[in-house]
Design a protein around this nucleic acid. Structure first.
Lengths: 168, 168
DNA sequence: GCAATAAAAGAAGTATACTGTGTAATTTTG
DNA sequence: CAAAATTACACAGTATACTTCTTTTATTGC
């Protein structure tokens, strides 16, 4: 909102924390910023039919060798079923393969394909542009501080998340 | 991740901005923090069957008089169709009413009910607890700075969002 | 060895949050 | 005043992100 209550009422300091106004609620601001990121990402990468989570999945696969769906979902920080949805869509597009493991026939090993690697290389600059635009309003010092604070929040609250990262 | 690459590689300063690692992508961190907030909110308010967006809708209605669905959705910062979904669900639960306007028969005027007000009063402490827990890892000074930075990002990027706020 | 347990995945269901299309009502314009 | 543009909503479809329940496969305990 560059409007109404915010401009008049925002005191620079919020001391009470009664969260009566939406824009004083951290969760609300984070949801808005998340929406904004999704919007920016779609603007840059939508033409390539790539979403932030799809990009994260492919990025993780690019680095390591194949892994099962649960490990992959967890390393991206999403629930196993949400991950399965994304992985299935990427498989349909030929960007990765899902092959039953020989060792453990319950597990399906996910691997990025050559097409997947090519695709990722092609869209990387657009992905980076979306990230750049998101933090463009901050100067260098503010960016460092923002990264520090958000990392602190994510790390400390990680256990509270419904899909905690790094627990595999 | 209090794991793998982050601990070893995180240099305190990220200068290159190549976004090769997930945790160096602002969009990724914001998505994680958003998930965490949703998780915390569900933990506190899930028993009352209340989501963050539902809470935002009811909060806006509580303050003013009735308004049409688009104005309501916009003031919460979501798309009109997403808003319509949420509003329909809240109507089904009797927490608000949707009545066709006399002045403009295209519009449906949304008003909070007495049950809605009672409900909101009852869950307010739990909502506040979710917000408190989210920013608990930060000290007072860090909180002020976090609010300042995230407000700056939201304000500056608002236009880029798919559902810009305050444009009504 | 076999039953109990645990783990990986699938399927169904819900909520959020969009896009796009279509419809009805209102307002603006020629 | 009639055509055109705009507005408010509804509906269908997609993607993310969960929950819960079930099936299949591995591991473990006895």
């Amino acid at each position: 909102m560059e409007n109404t209550s915010k401009k008049t009422a925002r005191p620079g300091k919020v001391k009470s924390r009664t969260y009566e106004e939406l824009w004083t609620r951290p969760g609300y601001l984070i949801r808005r910023l998340h929406q904004i990121h999704v919007g920016l990402f779609a603007e840059e990468c939508g033409g390539a039919d790539l979403t932030p989570v799809q990009s994260a999945i492919l990025t993780v696969l690019q680095g390591g060798e194949g892994m099962d769906q649960l490990t992959l979902s967890t390393s991206v920080g999403i629930d196993r079923t949400s991950g399965a949805d994304v992985i299935r869509r990427l498989e349909r597009r030929g960007l990765l393969t899902r092959i039953s493991s020989e060792q453990d026939r319950r597990a399906k090993i996910v691997k990025i394909t050559v097409e997947g690697r090519t695709f990722l290389k092609r869209v990387r600059p657009r992905m980076a542009r979306a990230q750049d635009r998101l933090i463009a309003p901050l100067d260098d010092e503010e960016r460092e501080e923002f990264f520090r604070l958000i990392n602190k929040l994510v790390d400390a609250n990680n256990k509270a998340s419904r899909a905690p990262m790094g627990t595999v």
